[in-house]
Design a protein around this nucleic acid. Structure first.
Lengths: 209, 209
DNA sequence: CATGTTTTGTACTAGATCGCATAAAAAGCT
DNA sequence: AGCTTTTTATGCGATCTAGTACAAAACATG
């Protein structure tokens, strides 16, 4: 938001003691901790261990536990949207695009360094969403966006003749999103990546065939 | 398991002080507590408050926190399977059956007394599944069974001519399960019941039409 | 009515968890 | 070098959490 995603040499050096840790990577490490054990299952000490920062530094940098989680959640959505945008935007047939989208999702779901963690949102935020309106609305907004992306792609496919005229883009978009949800769930439930790739392939065949 | 689901008058009266709470309803109350706030987010004191039992009684009746949760999880699967079996077994066309199945699922997902809680498994067990092999296998086994139920129903539909010969029952079963998953997720993310009913209707139309 | 049996209710211990207060460290500025 | 600023690091206190020990209560049996 405010500072150096790309280093900006016009910035003056800050006044006091320099930070020992990069905020971006620290947030990502905190997110990984939440990703493994969920919001309630992760203590600030866990996050402290994951980032190498001590608790007062964590608080100064990101706020309390809830704020850290919300930042991690927003960060995850950005990561995911970026990956999906790339998958949606690389051209090709509808089937090719859908396959790329699901591959991109699986790459994230299987990105855990030592375990399979699935989707951060489905795997951790959904649990909190029931009792936390802020998290709930962040989650819902992300889903809306993905639904819209799918729907736009199906409309395009129908216009181009890649999909038959009678097809309902909104209905297909919901099915496409549902497929992403089931991938997220099943990844965390232990289904292997190759199995999920087959699942995605079958779905693409049904939708496009 | 061992005793009175239906009261069994051949049982002798137990020897000591009678239980103040019915184990079955207590377990259901404990499950509702977990359902709201997840495994880690629910303390034994919360469960104690929900059931009216104090902690030593809880432990004597159900074991430690993890055992209580596992019992609640198995109990939920039983409840859900019973509802699905009814929905699958009531005859009618494929479209009618699927609609009944999703209605049954939504009835459970919206059964919370004061909030919408979605699916117990998707909303709470999936979070734990990543780091808990016992929970993971219980979850995975339930999914397998539902997948199989759907597949059997699609095979039947194809045999009866309710579905075109080229249809792939396994692929459709995965789509049908995915739809249930997305209902579970979206319910907890705040989507209204009527909206989800429409979603299910669209999916049924795509699958059957 | 005394005894044994089982459950309930209270209370204590140990450890986890979080927030915060305070000191020490590391830099820039004059 | 001394002062200011910002971060890091340590540690304390209050609360939460889980497990368990122990006494009281409630019942059946003889």
């Amino acid at each position: 938001m405010r500072s150096s995603t790309k280093h900006d040499d016009t910035e003056k050096k800050p006044r006091g003691r320099p930070r020992a840790y990069d905020p971006e990577t620290a947030l990502r490490q905190a997110a990984e901790a939440f990703w493994k054990t969920g919001y309630s299952g992760t203590s600030l000490d866990d996050i402290s261990a994951a980032t190498g920062m001590n608790r007062p530094s964590l608080r100064a940098a990101f706020g309390d536990k809830h704020e850290i989680y919300v930042k991690a959640l927003n960060d995850y959505w950005e990561l995911k949207f970026a990956a999906l945008d790339r998958a949606f935007g690389s051209g090709g047939t509808l089937a090719e695009t859908l396959t790329r989208v699901y591959d991109a999702a699986l790459s994230i779901y299987f990105s855990g360094s030592d375990q399979v963690l699935g989707c951060f949102v489905v795997g951790t935020a959904i649990t909190e969403a029931a009792g936390d309106t802020e998290i709930q609305s962040i989650v819902a907004e992300g889903f809306r966006r993905i639904d819209a992306d799918f729907e736009a792609r199906f409309k395009l496919a129908r216009a181009v003749g890649d999909l038959k005229q009678g097809a309902d883009p909104k209905a297909l978009a919901l099915l496409a999103s549902a497929t992403m949800h089931t991938l997220a769930i099943r990844a965390r439930a232990g289904t292997s990546r190759s199995e999920l790739k087959k699942l995605a392939h079958k779905v693409v065949s049904v939708i496009c065939g």
